[in-house]
């Protein structure tokens, strides 16, 4: 499994690009709010509504988790209901700490949380609708890990997101000796004065510059900010990418064979 190098570097960063990229991360929020319930045995101990605050009126005995969360979601008209057993978090941390090994990087460590949560899903941790819980940050870790594992050992990958015809966010990852080591943004490329009049054709200029400055790119992904936001919230990202590639809303070039096979 590919890991972050302990001496990896963030170099030549552009703050606004980086935070624009961060802003596309999906959040656990919905228009109608989320209801969180803490339970022990057959009693709801605490209830908290993300828009209304504490809801002590929802505490008390309940029958069974699948029934109560489905009923609550309809009755309270919220986007989702999370039912969490008291003590689950203490258990998760104890389990993660016990399973920790010195070889783990932060992504692997957080994946322990993901795996442990999956094991407890519908036992000590319930969500309704079920699909809702996997939209968050952990899902991003999984996707990142999967992508890193697909890349050739000494890769140079570029992700660039355009807004109109300006570069809105950009990220370049360089692999060295089979590890992810160097991460930068297009700030390092700014002195070359790249002009973009149509990103769907001019993306190739970026590839050329990266090739001149850092080495031949292995993977290039080019898209616009709106498409990226849809992708980050998509429940079927692979299908979404396949469709977006057909309409040039996402351009993947160059594309390593393993990734090409997966994207179809």
């Amino acid at each position: 499994m590919r890991r972050l190098n302990e001496n990896y570097e963030f170099v030549a960063f552009d703050t606004s690009h980086w935070f624009n990229l961060f802003s596309t991360l999906p959040q656990f929020t919905g228009d109608r709010g989320i209801l969180f319930l803490l339970y022990q045995g057959s009693e709801i101990l605490q209830a908290y509504h993300s828009l209304q605050g504490s809801r002590p009126d929802l505490t008390g005995p309940f029958s069974s988790p699948p029934i109560v969360i489905e009923q609550m979601q309809q009755r309270e008209d919220v986007d989702a209901v999370f039912l969490v057993e008291q003590g689950l978090v203490v258990y998760l941390i104890a389990k993660m700490q016990a399973a920790f090994t010195p070889e783990m990087d932060i992504i692997q460590y957080l994946e322990l949380a993901q795996t442990s949560l999956e094991e407890e899903f519908e036992r000590r941790f319930h969500v309704w609708p079920k699909e809702f819980w996997n939209k968050g940050l952990f899902n991003l870790f999984q996707r990142t890990r999967a992508l890193l594992d697909e890349l050739p050992p000494d890769h140079i990958c570029i992700l660039t997101v355009f807004e109109e015809n300006t570069i809105w966010a950009s990220l370049i990852i360089q692999g060295v000796d089979g590890q992810v080591r160097r991460i930068t943004t297009t700030k390092a490329l700014e002195p070359l004065g790249i002009t973009i009049s149509d990103w769907q054709t001019d993306y190739s200029k970026l590839l050329e510059v990266v090739a001149q400055k850092m080495g031949t790119p292995t993977l290039g992904v080019f898209t616009d900010d709106e498409t990226l936001r849809f992708l980050m919230r998509s429940e079927a990202p692979l299908k979404f990418i396949q469709q977006a590639r057909r309409t040039n809303q996402i351009i993947v070039e160059p594309i390593p064979s393993r990734i090409r096979n997966r994207l179809g």
Binding site: Q27, L38, A47, V84, V89, L110
Partner: peptide, 20 residues
Amino acid sequence: NNSNWLTQLLGIPDDLLLNN
């Protein structure tokens, strides 16, 4: 108060984890 870095990462509100 039973909230910590992991509960914040999971998006579980602090108020839910305060023993009542």
